[in-house]
Simulated assay, not measured.
Amino acid sequence: MKNLWIIAVLFGLISCKSEAQQEEQKTRDYKVKKTENEWKAELTQEEFNILRKAGTERPFSSPLDDVKESGTFVCAACGNELYETKHKFDSGTGWPSFDRAFDGSLAMSSDRNLGYERSELLCGDCGGHLGHLFDDGPRETTGKRHCINGVALKFIPKQKK
């Protein structure tokens, strides 16, 4: 019985959702503003869950994790330019990872979805949830790891001249 209670408490901590991201989306003045219904009409169900409800895709499920071609990663919701391939690295986590973003392209918030505080990365133009920021990135560059849901991104290859 005691083990069942412990499992129930742990499940509750892991599955609970913080409202921090939704509060950040409501209080910050973003350039791109849409109602929840407008976002639902424009985004796929998976994009809506991740970008607007702070969901997380399964690790190793995004084809963008393997992209090495030169180009730009933009917000899947609004097209805001976020990352360049040259700042992408293989973190081994199963999510596209970058050591930096374009200046001014991101907003930050925090969440406690897992019972401890994490730095949450949001699109600076529409407030869409992208992923999280960690301090275990490449030490030879920024030391940061932007752990991003591939569903939150679209890749635009660099035009060959």
Rank of each mutant, 00 (worst) to 15 (best):
E19C: 15
A20C: 13
A20V: 12
A20W: 11
Q21G: 13
Q21N: 15
Q22R: 14
Q22M: 05
Q22N: 12
E23P: 04
E23W: 15
E23D: 15
E24W: 13
E24M: 14
E24A: 15
E24C: 14
Q25R: 06
K26C: 11
K26M: 09
K26N: 13
K26R: 15
K26D: 11
R28H: 15
R28F: 10
R28E: 07
R28M: 11
R28T: 12
D29E: 10
D29S: 10
D29G: 12
D29R: 12
D29I: 12
D29N: 12
D29A: 10
D29F: 10
Y30S: 08
Y30M: 04
K31S: 10
V32Y: 03
V32R: 03
V32W: 02
V32N: 01
V32M: 08
K33A: 10
K33F: 03
K34Y: 09
K34E: 07
K34Q: 13
T35A: 00
T35D: 04
E36C: 12
E36Q: 14
E36W: 15
E36G: 12
N37H: 14
N37T: 12
N37K: 15
E38D: 06
E38A: 05
W39C: 02
K40L: 05
K40E: 02
K40W: 00
K40A: 02
A41P: 05
A41G: 09
A41Y: 04
A41W: 02
A41H: 05
A41C: 08
E42P: 07
E42G: 07
E42Y: 07
L43G: 06
Q45V: 14
Q45E: 13
E47F: 02
E47C: 08
F48N: 00
F48T: 01
F48C: 03
N49A: 15
N49C: 13
N49R: 15
I50T: 00
I50Y: 00
I50G: 00
L51D: 00
L51H: 02
L51P: 03
R52N: 03
R52L: 01
R52K: 11
R52W: 01
K53E: 11
A54N: 08
A54G: 05
G55T: 00
G55S: 04
G55D: 01
T56Y: 03
E57T: 05
E57W: 09
E57A: 08
P59R: 04
P59F: 07
P59Q: 06
F60D: 03
F60W: 06
